[in-house]
Design a protein around this nucleic acid. Structure first.
Length: 799
RNA sequence: GCGAGAGUGGCGGAAUUGGUAGACGCGCUGGACUUAGGAUCCAGUACUAAUUGUAAUAGUAUGGGGGUUCGAGUCCCCCCUCUCGCACCA
């Protein structure tokens, strides 16, 4: 084993002495590279390491291409686990968090990564969360932060509310508990105001992975349709949203969601409805989807066009938070309505004839209109617009777009987060904390009672809660909740630019210098949460004139997950995490980087396998062995005959390949081609000047992936400067040209011979060469119909 | 159910534009060196086929079936399996 520990220590110290990762003040050719930061619940594992290795490799390569780089690092330090540690183990969440950061930072430093530590930020530092609070106040001032009472997701285990994005399959994303509905008054960010922009700008994100863009589109769930006004018999008006106004004549009933204000109203006069609503609201989302149920209100609604009476139900399959919470039931042309109608024996009225017609289930396609008065025989697609037009003329409907995306619920009934900077005054109502009073500091941990309850621990801290109203000066109350930690990470790419600024959130000139992020690397699990929030906040700050860009990152790269030997995702709770420290102790940083990147394509998940580590260790040992033996420091000068040799050609081809592979994130094949080159270097005459040439080139190509050993060997060449201050090698275009090629001879598409031939030969020449082969002759019948010749590659004789 | 992606040796994977399938590595087999080998080096390694002449060969192979093409892992259609995302969004 080569002495990796010494080498790592030596070069990490040198890089630090050189202040190698310092961000340039005035970038000329900027490159902003960022990895998703870690949550501070434990030490760094190999999944993190893989993520950071991608970024570091890119940094080093861009450095050799003389880009000016910004590569910051920070900590997602607020959040529930810190508080859980306090409740369960009686630990101090602040100390717990900062100790974890200490440990993780120590590990990351040992990994020799290219971070500019002067840019380090921590979300739980008052100097950071001051600006998180400032951001919330700006949102409030723009009308994008509001308080609303509605049914929200409540995790009984975490004892806090959750955003829509934090509920996965009806369960809490952290603890897997069944999420309940509770009617609470909470703070929401009106992200839906930006839904249209967030949706359409996905098209700009051409360098984001396709699946992420698709997930975001689905998550935003833009649906075009119409709002249609209905009336109850007693004159009460309500609206429904539909994407299929063409089916309006097929409406045979109305269904109201149990959460709807209208059903609440009905419940006041109808005990059966009241009982049904109460029962429905107790159910979790999954339980609710199990079976369609409903209760007849015995009220009638009036069809807006036919004037016919329609029965009105309260039904569990109607969502409270989509559209108006009320639907028009069109059983003939909607599967869910069909199911409901069958169950309650409601009439099914066909208004579109499909081809073929579907008698026993709903027909949801388009077709010829029937039973629809003057729209009969029209195509339903055409009728759709015409019916909306008719409704608009009558003033009882209009075109409308609805989104699946919900407003972002950010209140959390927890201590360890940024306090929401709002004050409740009996006289003045809700008043934001004046900006000069920020930050609203968390009270010291010692003064807080963490006993788990249904309200924030801050609510019981009198000193914290009591405040004078900034407007009228009377005694008022603070908001006891803290902000969702996704608010913290929605704007961190801005703070990195100017992390010590205590006058403003960041300097606009710095933002102009560096934004957008050129490469953002992280996991796909953040597709519909963090990445949408981050896009939203960027757009918001753009609109306010702070951000020069309205999208945060030009390029997004999603690395795959690292799983254990059994294919289980590594996680703290499963106890199957491989610690990064442990790995680098065993094989060293560089071998670990190679192992992590050689496992497979960066974007795919990998199953960790200790056996696979041997290849990368052997590879580096071989490099080290030949390097310490056979280096001479003389000037290398190749002559024309050297350039004809196959090793020279291999070097140039590998240079091309490695460059292309780095550009397209194909690190596994990049390593493979370096291994191929090493295999050829090793068997070459060590005295030859070409050997020295090849070895030097090899080390430069190796440097981005294995920085420590490359620096060490580069210095053995007698070089004074870091290898990363060198130019990234360009390949010699002449060098990759070959005079000969292997002519593939096929007969009827089957491979029959391979012939070494000169490049540029004509079809006739290739054919006669091919026909000289015994094995070709055997298969070629006399009457050859056709000969296909792909120059310098292949000949196919059809006979 | 809907949407997206994938399926290649014993294993991880390569094949970038329709043109040599299996690069590179792991493992395995044999050998060298050795007191020893879980170190290192060398050779081999998709599968099948040996009574007679061409194993320096042929046949079969990229989940299964069909198609387009001189030629398909790659393009098209159908089916199977797996992974991920969404899951009553009207």
């Amino acid at each position: 084993m080569y002495p990796y520990k010494e080498i790592e220590k030596k070069w990490q110290r040198k890089w630090e002495e050189m202040d190698f990762y310092r961000t340039p003040e005035v970038p000329k050719n900027k490159y902003y590279i960022m990895e998703m930061w870690p949550y501070t619940s434990g030490n760094i594992h190999i999944g993190h390491f893989r993520n950071y290795a991608f970024g570091d490799l890119r940094w080093r390569w861009e450095k050799m291409n003389h880009r000016d780089l910004l590569h910051p690092f920070g900590w997602d330090a607020f959040g529930l686990p810190a508080e859980e540690a306090a409740i369960k183990k009686n630990l101090n969440p602040l100390e717990w968090t900062y100790n974890n950061i200490e440990t993780a930072r120590r590990t990351i430093k040992k990994l020799g990564l290219s971070y500019d530590w002067k840019k380090e930020i921590t979300t739980s530092d008052p100097e950071y969360y001051k600006w998180t609070q400032w951001l919330l106040i700006q949102l409030f001032k723009e009308g994008l932060l509001y308080r609303d009472e509605s049914y929200v997701n409540w995790c009984p285990h975490c004892k806090t509310v959750l955003a829509n994005e934090q509920v996965e399959g009806g369960k809490c994303w952290r603890c897997d508990s069944k999420v309940e509905k509770r009617k609470l008054k909470q703070w929401f960010i009106k992200i839906t105001d930006y839904a249209e922009e967030l949706y359409w700008d996905i098209e700009k994100l051409t360098n984001w992975p396709k699946n992420i863009r698709e997930m975001q589109r689905n998550w935003i769930g833009r649906n075009e349709g119409a709002m249609i006004q209905f009336k109850m018999e007693d004159g009460e008006e309500f609206e429904v949203f539909t994407t299929r106004p063409d089916t309006l004549y097929g409406v045979t009933f109305i269904c109201i969601s149990p959460e709807s204000v209208l059903s609440e109203k009905i419940a006041k006069k109808n005990d059966q409805v009241k009982k049904y609503i109460q029962e429905s609201l107790l159910l979790s989302n999954i339980e609710r989807t199990r079976e369609k149920t409903g209760v007849n209100t015995n009220l009638k609604a009036i069809h807006p066009l036919t004037g016919k009476e329609l029965p009105v139900f309260v039904a569990n399959y109607v969502l409270g938070n989509y559209g108006t919470g009320i639907i028009m039931g069109v059983p003939a042309h909607d599967e869910r309505d069909f199911e409901f109608a069958e169950k309650f024996h409601l009439p099914i009225k066909v208004v579109i004839i499909g081809n073929p017609p579907a008698p026993h289930r709903a027909y949801t396609g388009h077709g010829r209109m029937v039973n629809s008065e003057k729209f009969n025989n029209m195509n339903s697609k055409e009728a759709l617009n015409n019916i909306v037009q008719l409704l608009e003329n009558k003033g009882i409907g209009y075109k409308s777009i609805n989104y699946r995306l919900k407003d972002w619920l950010i209140s959390r009934q927890r201590y360890w987060g940024a306090p929401i900077p709002m004050i409740y005054c009996d006289k003045c109502g809700i008043v934001p904390v004046p900006e000069e009073d920020l930050p609203v500091l968390l009270p010291p941990v010692e003064e807080v009672n963490f006993i788990s309850r249904t309200r924030s621990p801050l609510a019981d801290h009198l000193g914290f809660m009591k405040v004078n109203c900034p407007k009228c000066g009377r005694v008022a109350k603070r908001d006891p909740d803290t902000a969702d930690t996704f608010v913290d990470s929605a704007w961190y790419h801005f703070r990195y630019l100017d992390p010590r600024n205590n006058k403003e959130i960041f300097n606009r000139e710095e933002a102009k210098k560096w934004l957008p992020i050129d490469l953002y690397i992280g996991g796909a699990e953040h597709a519909t949460g963090h990445l949408i929030y981050m896009r939203f906040i960027t757009k918001f700050l753009y609109k306010l004139g702070y951000s020069p860009v309205n999208e945060p990152a030009v390029r997004l790269f999603n690395q795959g997950v690292v799983r254990d030997e059994n294919g289980e995702v590594m996680s703290k709770s499963k106890g199957n995490m491989k610690d990064a420290n442990e790995l680098i102790e065993e094989i060293g940083v560089d071998a670990a980087r190679i192992a992590l990147l050689f496992f497979g394509p960066p974007e795919s998940d990998i199953d960790w396998n200790e056996e696979h580590l041997k290849g990368s260790t052997r590879f580096l040992n071989r490099i080290y062995d030949i390097s310490i033996e056979d280096i001479n420091n003389k000037k290398i000068k190749l002559d024309a005959s050297d350039r004809e040799k196959s090793l020279y050609k291999k070097v140039e081809k590998t240079t091309k390949k490695v460059t292309e592979d780095i550009e397209r994130f194909s690190y596994n094949t990049m390593i493979a081609s370096l291994m191929e080159l090493l295999n050829q270097i090793e068997v070459y005459n060590k005295k030859d000047v070409l050997y020295q040439y090849a070895l030097r080139r090899f080390i430069k190509l190796l440097a981005p992936i294995a920085p420590h050993i490359s620096e060490e060997i580069y210095s053995l060449f007698g070089e004074k400067d870091s290898v990363f201050l060198e130019d990234w090698p360009e390949f010699d275009p002449e060098g990759i040209l070959e005079e000969k090629f292997t002519l593939i001879v096929q007969v009827n598409g089957k491979l029959r011979a391979r012939i070494e031939a000169n490049k540029g030969i004509e079809k006739e020449e290739a054919l006669s060469l091919a026909l000289e082969c015994e094995n070709v002759k055997r298969f070629v019948k006399r009457d050859s119909k056709k000969v296909i010749y792909i120059p310098d590659k292949l000949i196919n004789i059809v006979s």
